[in-house]
């Protein structure tokens, strides 16, 4: 996909999600995160650091909100209902944990603002970041309602991997330099490997053949990663994946600006649904005995 191509065919790339999205998708990678199971342990976060060459920035830079964690676990305490003054004396229902990584929106707000098309939509449905095209305008980060883009304000590689820590770096992807935006890629190097292997073996990518680093390590198996293409185009490339069947089960549809669940009690929801970004991460509501 050349820059020229993008410029010439801009309007076809910016087709709305409801008109079928940007591409004739090959895959449509997506995820389901069950908040009934997530315990907030952070195994996914560290797995992501290990897989994706995330820089450790240290205490001082972290204090200036420069942490490079593509995946974070947000922790919220119960609050009074709006309009009420008082809160309970104790946190009787524990905490609310929310793993947040790039939502890989189908109508991503980060994409159209990039002046150099470094942020673009792949035929796999990923919000990709082309590092060597990025000029560091940070418009994308400014436009992301989920705050899931991370900017290299420093050349972190100078200090983050003192020898021999650098030997752990994953050679399947790069280490990013100063001035470049980075973000969750749904472990695109794993996707690439799986697709290449499938092509070599003259078959389609199988569900469960690979998964992202976060989903693979999750001790409670709260995360399910997979291809959602069947939801998007009925009869699409692959059989129904586990992830796709969960979307279906919870009656959340891609490419819809307003969800019309037959059973409104089903737990599936997307964060900031109302912004109409059409995210591809489905959350299943947290459950508490009351």
């Amino acid at each position: 996909m050349s820059l020229q191509n993008i410029i010439e065919n801009w309007s076809s790339y910016r087709k709305g999600a409801e008109q079928g999205g940007h591409h004739n998708y090959e895959h449509l990678w997506g995820m389901v995160i069950d908040l009934n199971k997530c315990t907030g342990c952070g195994a996914c976060v560290t797995a992501c650091y290990a897989e994706n060459n995330l820089a450790v920035v240290g205490h001082e830079k972290y204090s200036r909100n420069l942490g490079m964690n593509w995946l974070r676990i947000e922790r919220y305490w119960d609050e009074p209902d709006l309009g009420e003054e008082s809160v309970a004396e104790y946190q009787h229902h524990g905490a609310s944990f929310l793993p947040m990584h790039c939502q890989h929106c189908s109508s991503a707000t980060c994409e159209p603002v990039c002046p150099v098309a470094a942020t673009y939509h792949t035929p796999d449905g990923l919000n990709a970041q082309v590092y060597n095209r990025c000029v560091g305008s940070r418009y994308c980060s400014n436009n992301c309602p989920y705050r899931l883009r991370y900017f290299n304000f420093y050349s972190y590689y100078e200090e983050s991997w003192p020898a021999p820590l650098h030997m752990q770096l994953n050679p399947d992807l790069t280490v990013r330099d100063k001035g470049v935006m980075e973000k969750c890629t749904f472990c695109v190097q794993r996707i690439r490997t799986a697709k290449d292997t499938a092509r070599r073996e003259r078959r389609k990518v199988r569900d469960g053949e690979f998964t992202t680093a976060c989903a693979q390590t999750c001790p409670t198996s709260a995360m399910t990663f997979g291809d959602l293409l069947t939801l998007h185009t009925p009869g699409g490339g692959v059989g129904e994946t586990e992830a796709a069947s969960l979307w279906k089960k919870h009656q959340v549809e891609l490419g819809k600006s307003r969800q019309q669940k037959q059973n409104p009690e089903l737990r599936g929801y997307r964060v900031f649904e109302g912004l109409n970004t059409d995210p591809r991460v489905l959350f299943l509501e947290r459950v508490r005995e009351v």
């Binding site: 908040l35 947000e74 919220y76 709006l82 947290r286 459950v287 508490r288």
Partner: peptide
């Protein structure tokens, strides 16, 4: 030094809780 700024959801429905 902590991650994140807000300790509650400030009324936004980020984590929705339903009954068992």
């Amino acid at each position: 030094v902590v991650q994140g700024g807000s300790s509650t959801q400030v009324g936004r429905k980020l984590v929705v809780t339903v009954s068992a």
